[in-house]
Computed example of a mutant assay.
Amino acid sequence: MTDDLEDLKRRLVVGHKSDGRSVYDEAAKSQLVALCLQPGASVSRLARECGVNANQVGRWLREHGHGGRARKAVASVVPASAAFVAVPVPPASPIAVRSCDDIVAVMDVQARLPNGVAIDLRGVQLRHVGEVIEALGRLRCSASTKD
């Protein structure tokens, strides 16, 4: 655990109620919420390292207007029904020659699924690109599997 996270853990709980529930410092709660909103941050890991239940941190995220999950902002950028995200592809050599009489068009296909999986296929024949895209479109994938 980093020193900053250790310091946050020390400052987070400021006391206990008579029924045993913890009383939390508002500034430390806000700092933990900010950490949870960082790209690649795991809410459950940060909660565990700070000694707080992940559901409690989720509640703080909702209270701070973040819908309970740090990655909801990412999910709202890419609609759940969208199977693909636009990925810029640098131009490549579009034609490969097998023989003098047989010219076959090939291309590179790159796709990034909403759950963060990147697919990079090199040298796909143009006649197969449609089949590849259809197969990728049939994959069951949601942004919620990125954790």
Rank of each mutant, 00 (worst) to 15 (best):
D7E: 06
A83L: 12
V104Y: 08
V89D: 08
N53V: 07
A83M: 13
E6M: 11
A80E: 13
H66T: 02
V14A: 00
V23K: 02
S76C: 12
L35N: 03
T2K: 11
V33Q: 01
P79A: 12
A118F: 13
V33I: 04
Q56R: 11
S142G: 12
W60E: 00
S81N: 15
G40V: 02
L136A: 04
E6L: 13
G116H: 07
A28R: 00
A70S: 06
E26F: 01
A111N: 02
S81R: 14
D120P: 06
A80Q: 12
A143L: 07
H64M: 05
R48P: 05
A111K: 03
D4I: 06
W60Q: 00
C50L: 03
V85A: 15
G123R: 08
I133N: 05
V74E: 14
A75Y: 05
E6P: 05
V85P: 08
A54F: 08
A70K: 00
T2E: 09
V132F: 01
A86F: 14
V117N: 08
L136C: 04
A28S: 01
S144A: 13
S99D: 03
L32A: 00
L126T: 10
H66E: 05
R10Q: 06
P90T: 14
G51T: 08
R138C: 11
P88D: 08
H66S: 02
Q31R: 05
V97D: 08
T145P: 09
V109G: 02
C141D: 10
G15D: 01
D108K: 06
G68C: 03
R140Y: 15
V23T: 05
E63Q: 10
I133P: 02
G51A: 05
A80M: 12
A73N: 08
K72E: 14
R21H: 10
D108H: 08
S42D: 05
V89N: 11
R59S: 15
V57P: 01
R140N: 14
C50W: 00
R69M: 10
L8P: 00
P79F: 07
T2G: 09
S18V: 11
G65D: 03
L5S: 03
R71I: 10
A34V: 03
S93K: 13
P114R: 09
A86Q: 15
S18D: 14
E134G: 11
L37K: 02
A27I: 01
E26N: 02
Q38F: 04
I133R: 11
V132M: 03
G51F: 01
L139R: 11
G130F: 09
R71K: 13
M1R: 09
D25R: 00
W60M: 00
G130W: 09
L136F: 04
G137K: 12
G40S: 03
V104R: 12
D4N: 07
H66W: 04
K29H: 02
G68Q: 02
H128R: 10
T2M: 09
S42I: 01
R98F: 15
L61Y: 04
D7K: 13
D108T: 08
